[in-house]
Design a protein around this nucleic acid. Sequence first.
RNA 1: GACAUUGUAGCUCAGUUGGUUAGAGCAUCGGUUUGUGGUUCCGAGGGUCGUGGGUUCGAGACCCAUCAUUGUCCCCA
Length: 433
Amino acid sequence: MNPRVFKGARDFLPEQMLHRERITSVMRSVFKKYGFAPLETPAIEYLDTLTGKYGEDADRLIYRLDYKIGSKDAAALHYDLTVPFSRVMAMNPHLAIPFKRYQIQPVWRADRPQPHQGRFREFTQCDCDVMGTKSMVVDAELIAITYEVLKVLGFENFLIKINNRKILNGLTQYAGLTAEFTGEICRSIDKLDKAPWEEVEKELEEKNIPKTAIEKIKALLLGKNLSIENLRIAFANIPLALEGLDELTEIFKLLEIFEIDSKNYTFDLSLARGLDYYTGPIFETKLPLHPHIGSLTGGGRYDELIGLISGKEMPAAGISLGLDRIYTAMEQLNMLSDIKTSTKVLIANFSSETYVPSLQLLHQLRAIGIPTEFFPEQAKMKKQFSYADKLSIPYVLILGEEELKMGKISLKEMKSGDQILIEINDIEKEISK
RNA sequence: GACAUUGUAGCUCAGUUGGUUAGAGCAUCGGUUUGUGGUUCCGAGGGUCGUGGGUUCGAGACCCAUCAUUGUCCCCA
């Protein structure tokens, strides 16, 4: 048998896991700061919980299990974390509303993997959702969380695009079309960040959208002053679109209060997002300088999804931060150091005479909180130093016979190669320099 | 699903119009006389050239098929 990893899935070696853990720990601390509490749901769900929520295209990407196919108990791996969370809400009416949860788990999509773009079949989503309120404060907070996490991780040139499904529905009406065209139109104009208008226009023509409608859309999208205020005039007779514009105005006001740098977010009428369940504001983060990397985060308001599952209405909004996208971006932007272990000090295994004192030293260092390891084999010094070097362990401590006689220890700083003889009690001071 | 790309050592690749026993760098392991890595020097292991068939005296190179890979599109985190 040939050992291989499932296509689109990956092993994460320690040097990758250390970074992934750091990224998720930044997220966890920001999520908690905004008042979110953790939740976990099963990797596996009944198929009927998942189907019919995302739209036709996405439904085909659900990983169905070869188990009780065709029956009510057919199962699948979850496609995202939003729908399982909505199921939890439908099943637990006793929870205090508004309910704010975060959830960090892998999800599966039967997609064609494209690693360079950060696209996989198994990947980790880091979600924050709020159920039970229509307040735009929540939507603004979700954007603030996205901003804060990316900032703390060291991203500078990211852009959170903001739009509203209500405005997009209004756009269809504005063009003189019925609501059923909204999806097709959105999918086409969504490409405007990558493709020129001519291509989008061609696509719209192929979808049999009337010329007059295309012209109206073009005039609006390519118009010089594509601001919320100007859209208000264009959409003056479309109440739903006006409602969407009001919501965005409110969000932008809140983002200012939260001191989100305005260079990191923008209103983008061409942002559509593929999932069917969004009903209001929608968000997506891209790196404008690296357009080939897919969106780092995405989210929006889905006021009708819970109703779809439980029959009881409950407004909701959420975001998903893509751990793998963020990791891929950081990797390609050289934002990751080459750390391979958390160990700060390696104590060399010198001889049988120094065995016990070395282990006492090991215990002593761990007791004061210094991540320390002892080389378990009595190998040649060369081998032990080369181990420290490979793992980029910053310090090696040698407690050999000579040091033992003097009652001191040798401390070598690996990067510079400098080695000094110090008192045991001075270790903490020396390595924190 | 559509179009394109590439399959030679663990990795990155070379391999000249087909011609002995298929090479390099990196990585791995060992040695460099035994208390010091990352830098020197020496050495070793590791490939049925994706798979199956065909052309030929002869195929890693050419032809067909097949599988896989990678990229773009679609869609998304």
